[in-house]
Simulated scan of single mutants.
Amino acid sequence: MTKLSVNINKVATLRNARGGNNPDLLKVAKDCERFGAQGITVHPRPDERHIRYNDVYELRSLLTTEFNIEGYPSEEFVKLVCEVKPNQVTLVPDKPDQLTSNAGWDTEKYLDFLMDIAAHFHEKKFRVSFFVSADKRMIEFSKRAGADRVELYTEPYAATYVQNPEVAITDFLEAATYAKEIGLGLNAGHDLSLHNLRYFHQQIPWLDEVSIGHALICDALYLGLKETIHQYLACLQD
Rank of each mutant, 00 (worst) to 15 (best):
T100E: 08
Q98V: 09
R127Y: 08
G104D: 03
T160K: 13
T160Q: 14
V162M: 10
V81K: 03
L91V: 08
W105N: 07
F126C: 11
S61F: 00
S129Q: 07
I117Y: 07
K79C: 05
D116E: 15
G71M: 03
F131H: 05
V84I: 13
P73N: 04
V162A: 12
M138A: 14
K124S: 05
W105C: 07
P96E: 13
H120F: 11
L114V: 12
T90Y: 09
F113V: 11
N102P: 00
F141I: 02
S133G: 10
N87P: 02
K125R: 15
T65F: 00
K79E: 13
L152Q: 04
T100L: 12
Q88K: 09
N87Y: 07
P156F: 10
A145Y: 07
S129E: 08
A103Y: 09
A158M: 07
V128W: 02
V150H: 03
P156H: 10
G71S: 04
E140K: 14
S142V: 01
K85F: 07
V132Q: 03
A119E: 14
V132N: 02
M138G: 09
I139G: 07
F121Y: 12
K109A: 13
K143Y: 09
M138Y: 08
I169K: 03
T160W: 00
E123F: 03
R149Q: 06
R127L: 15
L62G: 00
P96V: 13
L63V: 00
E155L: 10
N102W: 05
S61C: 00
Q163Y: 07
I139D: 04
F131S: 06
D106V: 09
R137N: 14
K124T: 03
L91P: 04
F77W: 10
F131N: 04
C82I: 04
R137P: 00
L152T: 04
K109P: 02
D112C: 06
D97E: 15
Y110S: 07
V128H: 01
P165T: 01
